[in-house]
């Protein structure tokens, strides 16, 4: 996580970010395979650009919808902003605490119970146990997981995991909240509740990146949006124009 101490309102700044993956035909997992390939000089060099030369900035308090078809690079972009991936080239600057929820979930330990994960994830976001103890009842209440809070996470459904992750991430007031498809798994009731929670965070100056295939939802929640296509950023601006453009694209 790189911090930029400039006192502007830019909280996320990407400068010519490119992410390349080395597509191994098969993953080299064992030493034997590795040495055989090394001798044959066959260590695969097939590259794939998941993100191609992306630059943009996001200001404090913006809620940006990230649109694009499957494979456009949305999750990769979120992972780069969250610091999970280091970009192949280019630079990423973010300010403050980032609470990422990527590919339906937060960073949880599956052996740990729901309650233990609340403290663990709190610590990941930089909070002490003491602080999390105060937040604990609110998180449990919002997630509606009271009866399951002492059950190991491996026994949770994906909806339950998403609920727990969303509850923690929103209760600790992060500076940047990354929501990747999180609101698409919960039931309608929880989705509504989450949307309201997000809207109530609008004035708390939390910056939100919101990945969803549901255009209506993006329109409801976001004031800005961007469209990714095959790893390239093809448009970014106010939600109304971008939504229109995206509707054209997906017709």
């Amino acid at each position: 996580m790189k911090e930029n101490k400039d006192s502007s309102s830019e909280v996320i700044k990407l400068d010519t970010v490119t992410m390349e993956f080395n597509l191994h035909k098969e993953k080299l997992d064992s030493m034997k395979e590795y040495f055989i390939k090394l001798i044959k000089k066959d260590v695969d060099k097939k590259h794939f650009k998941a993100l191609d030369n992306i630059s943009f900035t996001v200001n404090r308090g913006d809620r940006v919808g990230v649109l694009g078809l499957n494979g456009a690079g949305k999750s990769t972009l979120m992972k780069i902003i969250a610091g999970v991936f280091e970009p192949t080239s280019g630079s990423v600057h973010t300010k403050g605490i980032i609470a990422p929820m990527i590919e339906l979930g937060a960073g949880f330990d599956m052996q740990y119970t729901g309650a233990e994960n609340i403290y663990l994830y709190g610590a990941v976001l930089g909070h002490s146990r003491k602080f999390m103890e105060k937040q604990f009842p609110g998180i449990v209440e919002f997630s509606e997981l009271k009866e399951f809070i002492d059950v190991p996470l491996k026994n949770y459904s994906s909806g339950m995991r998403a609920r727990l992750g969303f509850s923690i991430a929103t209760m600790v007031n992060p500076d940047i909240l990354i929501l990747d498809e999180v609101l698409s798994v919960g039931d309608a009731k929880f989705r509504k509740k989450s949307e309201n929670k997000l809207l109530s965070m609008m004035d708390e100056s939390t910056t939100v990146l919101f990945v969803s295939h549901n255009l209506e939802q993006v329109k409801r929640l976001c004031n800005k949006a961007m469209i990714l296509e095959k790893g390239k950023l093809i448009a970014m601006g106010n939600i109304d124009e971008i939504a229109e453009q995206y509707e054209e694209m997906t017709k």
Partner: peptide
């Protein structure tokens, strides 16, 4: 062992 964390958050 910490795959679940590494894939989702920066630590």
């Amino acid at each position: 062992q910490n795959e679940g964390l590494i894939k989702k958050v920066y630590v």
